[in-house]
Design a protein around this nucleic acid. Structure first.
Lengths: 133, 133
DNA sequence: TTCCATGCAAACAATTTGCAGCAGT
DNA sequence: ACTGCTGCAAATTGTTTGCATGGAA
């Protein structure tokens, strides 16, 4: 794999934008400084980094794929109002064998309404009465 | 909401295909008997049913949206080789308040290799050493 | 008769890919 | 010099939408 300026700045962008950006958000951000950068290159490199385990790709229902520089085990919570994604640290212990499956990974996603959106006056659902995690 | 033949057979298809079908799979299946059925109608109705809580929409990374007739609380496990989705019943207890979030729902997705694919001789990853669920 | 739902095709959004030229080794 | 990487644009894929017509109430 060759070292290119593009690879460098794309990876750096994921590290510095701590907001779980989409490919397009990264592209838009970098475009300011790198006029000729192409969206295809951003996608190509993000996917490559994810395969190499340098970053993580997180698929969100209805809000597109996000990229996350945090490699440690953690889960995500998605605000359904603003689409922002936050990290949460919960202990999800999964055996590597489960009902005839060899389990290689998992993803836990919580949905809800974040603090800011709660206070911004929009109507919201009530909780569903579930228990402490 | 009006009762139409299309609504009837689409909903019935989700109930009878117990394979977590995509919209397109449902469409293809029904097209055999209903020549003039349109894919748009399938999408429209599936989304409507999901909103009404008659079925469930499950978003899978890399394999498109699936529809599930099972309404009870359960999670999914996705085979990375064949793309099949299976139900699993695990106890995921989540509080309705979590770090300033009002939690309205969650989704736990495990990835792995199913029994059939394990035995079909393809190379596979080793487990990641995690613990009993 | 009134409108909602459908079929159809076009529109869309997100992502991937083919290719010729350019740049890293 | 060789070959992979990039920019660009076109192609794909999955899904939604506008509109005229047909069918349920």
């Amino acid at each position: 794999m060759k070292n290119t300026k593009q690879k460098e700045v794309i990876l750096e962008a994921v590290y510095s934008m701590k907001t779980h950006p989409t490919a397009d958000e990264i592209y838009t951000e970098l475009k300011k400084d790198y006029e000729r950068l192409s969206l295809g290159t951003v996608y190509r490199n993000l996917n490559q980094f994810a395969e190499q385990g340098k970053i993580r790709k997180v698929t969100m229902p209805a809000f597109g794929d996000r990229f996350d520089y945090r490699l440690e085990e953690h889960e995500h919570i998605l605000c359904e109002k603003c689409g922002k994604v936050f990290d949460i640290h919960v202990d999800v212990a999964i055996s590597s064998e489960f009902e005839d499956f060899t389990v290689t990974g998992h993803q836990l996603l919580l949905y809800g309404v974040c603090k800011d959106c709660k206070h911004s006056g929009k109507h919201m659902n009530t909780g569903d009465g579930s228990v402490i995690f």
